[in-house]
Design a protein around this nucleic acid. Structure first.
Lengths: 163, 163
DNA sequence: AATAGTCAGTTCCAATACGGAACTCATAGT
DNA sequence: ACTATGAGTTCCGTATTGGAACTGACTATT
């Protein structure tokens, strides 16, 4: 299977990764959340080739994660802004950055601090269950196939097990 | 800049993505959290070529996200299991899948349900601030450079702004 | 004893994607 | 007239991928 066909799988993650799972795309999104909006700024900060950047920005725009907004006429120039859909990816970015801070930081500490405006402290991101309010880890979750997918998605040993 | 050199940047996300940001790697991790552990099972479920799978599993093992555990001798066979570090990536996977469920699902609904064992309901993942307990969105965060990186990481307009 | 099957890879080759650099096009500034 | 800005596109040599076959150490079946 080619990478460009994975969005046809019945899997939400596969479809999400078809848009943002490319090699440079999550770094583009990192910069979006830092306030970068213009082509040349992305290019200089990331060091990615212009060709690849152009392709990734196009895919993000087609996926409605970014939108092109004109910031001047004559000559017409656009900048890339996060849409609501795009901003909803923030938890992914926050947890990814926090995981990197925890396991891959060098002696100089975390390069960027994410401060929670409301309480003023560096964000310590936790995964919370919206229903009961508990903090959730991998071991607290069991998976089930949706009604239309029984017996199709999970490895055999998972369909009978609790864990 | 080549993709293989991004782990040298002073950015936790870049370093994390150097291990898990490759095209197929997050799908490999998805399957790990579904309980898949063996080479051929990954290969059949993902449809990725064996060559690429071998490479990605090696990188995940080198990054201590997976570990090779012998499950039989004669002939010696290994399976790939998530380490503690690997399980700590669960919030990333959960939010990614939820984002896909929300924006990219078709008429058949979410293919896989993640049930929170403690409360029995499908997980509604939320990003919570561990300090104050509030639910956090992108707009609630401002970024600051770490002490050793002043003036080096953020786009110019962010260093003076609040947002 | 010979054959087929399992499993985790490795090897080979053609097709695709990437990195680097230069180039385009419309316009503004000096 | 000349230079700069900004968002790309074009070109070309190199690196990576997709697909399929092959390897090697066994176990199971005939």
């Amino acid at each position: 299977m080619r990478w460009q066909d994975i969005d046809q799988q019945p899997c939400s993650m596969a479809r999400a990764l078809a848009i943002i799972g490319d090699n440079w795309t999550l770094l583009v999104l990192r910069d979006c959340f830092l306030g970068v909006r213009r082509f040349d700024d992305f290019q200089q900060r990331l060091g990615v080739t212009r060709h690849v950047l152009s392709d990734r920005l196009r895919k993000l725009t087609e996926g409605e994660i970014l939108e092109k907004v004109a910031y001047q006429q004559r000559p017409l120039r656009h900048e890339y802004r996060l849409t609501g859909r795009g901003r909803d990816l923030y938890p992914v970015i926050a947890h990814l950055a926090q995981w990197g801070d925890k396991y891959l930081a060098d002696s100089k500490g975390a390069p960027v601090l994410r401060i929670h405006k409301q309480c003023g402290h560096p964000l310590h991101a936790q995964l919370q269950c919206g229903h009961c309010g508990d903090i959730v880890e991998a071991k607290d979750i069991r998976v089930e196939e949706g009604p239309d997918y029984i017996g199709q998605l999970l490895p055999a040993q998972m369909t009978s097990r609790t864990k």
